[in-house]
Amino acid sequence: MPEATPAPNPAPDRVTGTSRVKRGLAEMLRGGVIMDVVTAEHAKIAEDSGAVAVMALERVPADIRRDGGVARMSDPALIEAIQGAVTVPVMAKARIGHFAEAQVLEALAVDYIDESEVLTPADEAYHIDKWAFTVPFVCGATNLGEALRRLSEGAAMIRSKGEAGTGNIVEAVRHLRSILGDMRRITQADSAELYGWAKQLQAPVALVQEIAESGRLPVPLFCAGGIATPADASLVMQLGAEAVFVGSGIFKSSDPARRARAIVEAATHYRDAHILAKVSKGLGDPMRGDDIATLDVKLAERGW
């Protein structure tokens, strides 16, 4: 079992918890698939299928949506069991604004914390001050302003939110197009217009200027919420996502191991339609999924 706290720093010239190492782990996950798992057995299946990381939680989003009630951080015993079962990074979710849950997850030495709208928010005004932590954070965003506000709070990875637990890709596409479309427009803006963009996005002008210069977010942009097929993964990666989170889409399908592996291959070969055709054959039934218009609760509207 991993130790709950990191070993004491053996060398004083060694620095942990820097932006460079936080963003660095996200960069190492590029081109990969991060899979939601609810048991150590699921975690093994995910790793065997080529997952770059797993997200440890008690219920996948489709079940959270079905069951209702308050969704909270997972039981530490479950997280430890999953950490003990796999060698790939293990992530876990904290409620929006629930910095005490995040402190517990850091004590468990999870590799990334997802401050997630899939859980019930704990604070209606403030997200977690993520600079205060050594462990890196990923946050969801539906548009560029939201992404930049999360970055200003210290997030080291952004994922487009999509609509978790639906198996419906339409919201992920909307959010990605919004984020990437505004970034493309910002690269065309002159220096005076960047102040207008900062005002419109309600985001720090320094981050807007950084995007104008580089054409990219300063951290990796991944996609979550609604990915259920290899072609879904290809679609969002061709749109500009650098990796994908798959939640309910794998373990709510009829043949999880096979589908997981196919989505992993799709994330690598996302521009090669022949390989996509090959890996998409005979995967069994995907998760059933929901039309967005029929939903009572839109998880993506949590957070701001």
Partner: peptide, 15 residues
């Protein structure tokens, strides 16, 4: 040996 320094919280920069 993989992950020899521990989990992500032990990731570091040095000279």
């Amino acid at each position: 040996r993989r992950n020899a320094f521990g989990r992500q919280v032990a990731s570091f920069e040095t000279d």
